[in-house]
Structures are given as structure tokens and as C-alpha cells.
């Protein structure tokens, strides 16, 4: 019988093995850092540094050309005096609070339908995703055409049911609802994410529910929604952030190429006002302060959402 020599713990052989493991781990770490260094450098140069620098700029009067002039917290004080900041924030809250839930509900409804589409699912998946490929600027122009109060397709469709559609693009009461409806144009990506999550729900759960006599509504609310709550939460939180930062479609339709002189206060969202301060009026310091205020607002909302999510969101394999 062959004898295998085994070093006792604490002997020279054990130390050698440990050292080899450490060396190997160090080599792996070095290799990993090397591989991710392009991203790290990109992050430091194009994200971290601009973030730090914008914090500094927010304390200055800066017009892009001349050196920043330190003004302390003047820009932040001005934020609370500027009535347009209040207007832009209220427009943004209105948009986000209505758009995000609506967007999630429509995405979920379409995903549930797609889940039942069988072999046609591939075609519809592509069809739903295609609008997402439309550049946002084109969507802004499309909005003006679709929602034209006189000849737009939306009012024409409403007319078939005897409804006299509103002046979506000029009536301040209807500008934001129009933008919210138009934002549903791009639900495709969320539908795909939810569809993937739906496909991961174990069939046994539905079978058990059916045996217990649960109907479609109960199955959806008690099994489907909880089981895909992680994906739903992701869509909810990402769209909330996007809602606070909404810009391109509204800017194109009401401030940019769609209307070079006509504008509508009802579409003055926070980032549009920030953009105007930065790039039209060249008040880069003030715009930086605006960016930091938005950052704080979004962080607060995100923290609340994460806190609340702990009660409602189910993560497979999570230890609680």
C-alpha cells in the first residue's frame, strides 16, 4: 500500500500552499484590474471627475469662457428664489407621478398578453420593441403630428367616438397628458424585460393555484406579480429616474426644432430649464447647482423606493 506523506497543519508545506494561493489570487486580481481598467479610467475621467468638478462649479459664477468666479452658496440660494425652478419641479413631479405607474402598468399588460401569444410572440416582441429604436427627437416631432388638435390622428380617433379632442399641443392643461401618452411609445424595452421575468415563473405555482381553484386575476395578483416583482421594481425605479430627467421629446416639441419660438410653460421640465440655463444663457454655475438639487431629489426618491421595496419585492434565493 502506497503511503502518502501529508504535512501536518502549520508545517512548511502548508505555508507554501497558502503562499501559492495568495500569489494566485493576487495574479487574478491584477489580471481583473487590468481587464476592467479601461472602464475604470473611463469612469474616472468621464463620470467621476465631471461629478466632482460640477460640485465645484455649482459654487461659482461660470460662463464657459472665463474662469469660474467663486460665489459660495449663492447659486443654491437663487434656486429657492427662482420661480421657474418651482414651476419646472412641479411639472416634473406631475409627469413622473403619472407617467411611471402608467408606463409600468402598460408594460405589464403587454407582457402578459405577449406571454400568451404562443408562436406569434416573436413577431409581436419585435413589433413592440421597434418604436424604441425611434430617435427621441423624431418622437418629439411625431408628437406634434399625432396630437395636432386640428388634424392629428389622436383627435381623429377620438372623433370616431363622438369625442371632441383637446388642443393637446397648446392648451397648458393638456400638454403634459399628451407627453405622458406619447412616452408610452417606448414601452417595448420594459415589455421585453417583463416577458423574460414572466417566463421564469415556475409553472408548478400556476398548476397548484389552478388546482386550488384560483382564477386569472387571483393568479396574476398572487403569483405572477410577486414572482416578477424584482423586474417590476427595476423598471419602476429606472423609469422614475428617467421621469425626473425627461428632456428630449418635450424639448424638441416645445422648445427646440419643433417650435423655434413658440414654447409652453406646461412643458418646462426641470432638465429643460437646466439645459437652457447651461447652454442657452451660459449660466453654467447655476445649472450645476440645479443638477445637484436634482441629484439630491432623485436620491431621496430612490432611497424611499428601495426602503419600501424591501416589503414588496421578492428576490429568488434571497436570505431574509
Amino acid at each position: 500500500m502506497a503511503r502518502t506523506q501529508v504535512d501536518a497543519p502549520g508545517t512548511l508545506g502548508d505555508d507554501r500552499a497558502a503562499r501559492a494561493r495568495r500569489m494566485s489570487r493576487r495574479r487574478e486580481t491584477r489580471a481583473a484590474l487590468l481587464f476592467i481598467s479601461p472602464w475604470i479610467i473611463g469612469f474616472l475621467v468621464f463620470t467621476a471627475w465631471p461629478i466632482i468638478y460640477s460640485a465645484y462649479l455649482s459654487l461659482t459664477d461660470y460662463d464657459v469662457i472665463n474662469d469660474p468666479n467663486y460665489v459660495g452658496f449663492e447659486n443654491y440660494e437663487e434656486l429657492f428664489r427662482d420661480p421657474d425652478v418651482g414651476l419646472a419641479l412641479s411639472n416634473t413631479f406631475y409627469f413622473t407621478i403619472i407617467q411611471v405607474p402608467l408606463y409600468v402598468i402598460v408594460s405589464l399588460a403587454l407582457a402578459l398578453l405577449l406571454d400568451k401569444a404562443g408562436r406569434a410572440s416573436g413577431f409581436f416582441r419585435t413589433a413592440f420593441f421597434l418604436p424604441k429604436m425611434t430617435p427621441p427627437v423624431a418622437v418629439g416631432i411625431l408628437l406634434l403630428l399625432l396630437f395636432n388638435g386640428q388634424s392629428g390622428l389622436i383627435n381623429e380617433a377620438l372623433g370616431w367616438f363622438g369625442v371632441d379632442g383637446p388642443a393637446w399641443t397648446t392648451d397648458p392643461d393638456w400638454v403634459k397628458p399628451g407627453l405622458i401618452l406619447m412616452s408610452l411609445w417606448s414601452v417595448g424595452s420594459s415589455v421585453i424585460i417583463l416577458l423574460a421575468a414572466l417566463r421564469n415563473v415556475p409553472q408548478e405555482l400556476y398548476d397548484s393555484a389552478r388546482v386550488d381553484g384560483a382564477g386569472w386575476w387571483k393568479t396574476t395578483m398572487r403569483i405572477t406579480v410577486p414572482m416578477i416583482s424584482g423586474a417590476l421594481f427595476f423598471i419602476f425605479i429606472v423609469n422614475t429616474i428617467a421621469g425626473f430627467q425627461t428632456f428630449t421629446e418635450a424639448y424638441t416639441a416645445y422648445f427646440g426644432s419643433g417650435n423655434t419660438t413658440y414654447s409652453n410653460d406646461a412643458a418646462l421640465f426641470y432638465v429643460i430649464y437646466l439645459f437652457r440655463q447651461a447652454f442657452e444663457f451660459l449660466n453654467m454655475g447655476y445649472a450645476s447647482a440645479m443638477a445637484w438639487l436634482l441629484f439630491v431629489i432623485i436620491m431621496i426618491f430612490t432611497a424611499i423606493q428601495i426602503k419600501v421595496s424591501r416589503r414588496f419585492v421578492y428576490y429568488e434565493g434571497e436570505q431574509r
Binding site: I51, L57, I241, Q245, S288, A291, M299, I306
Partner: peptide, 23 residues
């Protein structure tokens, strides 16, 4: 989806998108 992953992606996304544009 892991909660930590969501949290970190949210923080990075928020910070990057909001602040990088102004510098």
C-alpha cells in the same frame, strides 16, 4: 435581480446622468 445590484446600478446611473452633463 439582486437588490444590491439594483441599488448600485441606481446610484451609478443617477450620479452619472444627472451630474456629468454639467461639468
Amino acid at each position: 435581480m439582486r437588490p444590491a445590484a439594483v441599488r448600485w446600478s441606481v446610484v451609478a446611473l443617477t450620479a452619472g446622468l444627472v451630474l456629468a452633463g454639467c461639468a
